[in-house]
């Protein structure tokens, strides 16, 4: 991958990771077990996350999907997630 991308053996701080995944497809998992999948608009140092509906994209991920126990429960255009609920943010492949 590009810029601060995944080059094995290289140190990558959380700040670098956050920079690298902006605009990418991500999986956000909350402590409660709820998952969100979509394109990351922006985030801050508290891991607050802005999820925005995207108009572009080669893939059916223009809105955000909320999964509870693996089942699709909701779709959001825009949404804000408060960072204290976030367990992890993971880059995901478009498969």
């Amino acid at each position: 991958m590009e810029d601060a991308g995944v080059s094995t053996g290289v140190t990558k701080t959380p700040a670098e990771f956050l920079k690298a995944i902006k605009g990418k497809a991500v999986l956000v998992k909350l402590n409660s077990g709820v998952d969100y999948r979509g394109i990351l608009a922006c985030l801050d140092g508290y891991m607050n996350i802005a999820m925005e509906q995207t108009e572009v994209g080669d893939w059916d991920m223009r809105s955000w999907e909320e999964y509870v126990n693996g089942q699709l429960k909701n779709k959001y255009g825009d949404a804000f997630i408060r960072g204290n609920n976030v367990l992890y943010i993971s880059a995901i492949n478009k498969t």
Binding site: G77, D78, A79, I81, N85
Partner: peptide
Amino acid sequence: RGDGVILVSPPLR
């Protein structure tokens, strides 16, 4: 109180 908030979704812009 903010600490109870998980998600906020605004109306569609």
